[in-house]
């Protein structure tokens, strides 16, 4: 039975020792803010118009929407700054979240394929999303907001490393 080595005590569960995190591009903040503006901002404007023209009661949902918008706008930059990934010798670490923190360890040999995606907004902002897939559907390994060059470099490196460490299921 292997016992866990107490000497390997890391600083915190989401900060393994000896890992330097690569950050995602700050342009992801802009991308997320645009999406937020569309999802909360447009209904907010609509509510405000209805409230001004028809009935003041609609100010209540408008206020709720405004609060949500403000909160998420304040949250998004911190969220994006909390995202990080690190290429270790044999696996890739991805970390995200402030309130609900998550850390995923994906061994290169377990990767089945790598997706690089960029929607119209992402292309405009010059960022791309890299997603790693293993045979497990529950593997949630997404790195959004990478510069396209970095995304391509990462994809190629991951694929190359995956081939070198190829394993079956």
């Amino acid at each position: 039975m292997t016992s866990i080595d107490p000497a390997a005590q890391p600083a915190g569960p989401f900060d393994p020792p000896g890992v330097t995190w690569d950050r995602v591009s700050p342009r992801l903040i802009t991308a997320r803010l645009v999406v937020l503006a569309l999802t909360f901002g447009l209904p907010l404007v609509a509510c405000a118009v209805v409230a001004a023209l028809v009935t003041p009661w609609v100010w209540i949902p408008a206020g709720v929407l405004a609060a949500l918008l403000l909160w998420t706008v304040l949250l998004v930059p911190r969220q994006v700054r909390a995202m990080g990934y690190a290429e270790r010798d044999d696996d890739l670490l991805i970390r995200k979240g402030i309130l609900f923190r998550q850390l995923v360890v994906v061994p290169y040999g377990r990767m089945q394929f790598v997706d690089v995606e960029a929607g119209p907004l992402d292309r405009k902002l010059d960022i791309a999303k890299v997603q790693l897939h293993t045979a497990a559907a529950s593997t949630d390994a997404v790195i959004p907001g990478l510069a396209p060059d970095e995304a391509e470099r990462l994809r190629d490196r991951l694929t190359a490393r995956g081939e070198a460490r190829l394993a079956g299921l």
């Binding site: 989401f14 609900f100 850390l103 995923v104 061994p107 377990r110 293993t134 593997t139 949630d140 390994a141």
Partner: peptide, 16 residues
Amino acid sequence: HERTQSLGLGQGPWQR
């Protein structure tokens, strides 16, 4: 051990 695909760690606010 050899069947591990990937590993995850999660922590919510109460857990922290």
